[in-house]
Write a protein that binds this DNA or RNA. Structure first.
Length: 236
DNA sequence: ACATTAACACCAC
DNA sequence: GTGGTGTTAATGT
């Protein structure tokens, strides 16, 4: 017979002493302050479908993708970027073992802490709990955006829409332009937007001819965000 | 008409 | 050399 205990002894206060005595601002990110950074190359795998993860990861730089395989085809389930937490569902004891996780960009930087440490600290600090919820909400929105794109837009529009939103959010603004460095490969853009690699290449070259974007292997510039958004066929 | 895939050449690191 | 890009032809819906 299982009993569920809804009581939370130390929730919401007092704040435990040992674990967060050295955390200055109220931030989940601060939990990782003294943890060394790990740099991943594109394609490096953190763990595979079926593995049991033992860490919670924080993305510092670059992008991480979560996917499952279906007769050789990669199904992109989610992707994470700077400030996102991987396996943070562990705070409520949920651990997703059904996805492979790997670095999507060159020079992806992450930090990791044991799941138990993360769990204990977050569970006893409501502010951190709220911050985590907020972060997960961001991921949920991103996934919903992707679903909307997939259902409503043509493949051209999907690619354009993803590029517009992604660069606007993750690139830095320089004058009227947005620069994303490093960029994603056409293959990865295709995986996210639900389009073939060649399709992405062709669309991006058209956009380049029209001087709406520019790109090399090191960067992607959006020259005219308004036109790009207009071409995407979505309001925002 | 739209989109994906295969094939191949080419280029960069 | 390997991985990424550019282009076109064939094929499917």
């Amino acid at each position: 017979m299982m009993t569920i205990n809804f009581k939370r002894e130390s929730f919401p206060t007092p704040i435990p002493t040992l674990l967060n005595s050295n955390i200055h601002p109220q931030s989940c990110i601060a939990l990782f302050d003294k943890v060394p950074e790990v740099t991943l190359k594109k394609g490096d795998v953190l763990f595979r479908e079926g593995d049991t993860p033992h860490f919670v990861y924080l993305v510092i730089k670059g992008m991480i993708k979560l996917y499952s395989l279906h007769d050789g085809k990669e199904m992109l389930e989610d992707y994470l970027q700077k400030g996102d937490f991987l396996n943070c569902e562990a705070v409520i004891g949920e651990i997703d073992k059904n996805k492979t996780v790997e670095a999507m960009t060159q020079m992806t930087v992450i930090k990791k802490i044991p799941i138990s440490t993360f769990q204990k600290t977050i569970q006893t600090n409501p502010k951190l709990y709220a911050e985590l919820l907020f972060n997960i909400l961001g991921r949920l929105n991103r996934t919903q955006e992707r679903l909307r794109r997939l259902i409503l837009l043509s493949s051209q529009q999907r690619v354009i829409h993803f590029i517009a939103l992604h660069v606007k959010k993750s690139g830095r603004q320089v004058g009227f332009e947005y620069v994303l460095k490093p960029p994603l490969t056409h293959q990865e853009i295709g995986n996210i937007a639900g389009a073939g690699r060649q399709t992405v290449t062709t669309i991006m070259n058209e956009l380049r001819r029209d001087n709406i974007i520019h790109f090399t292997r090191q960067y992607l510039i959006v020259r005219d965000m308004d036109r790009l958004l207009a071409l995407s066929g979505m309001k925002y």
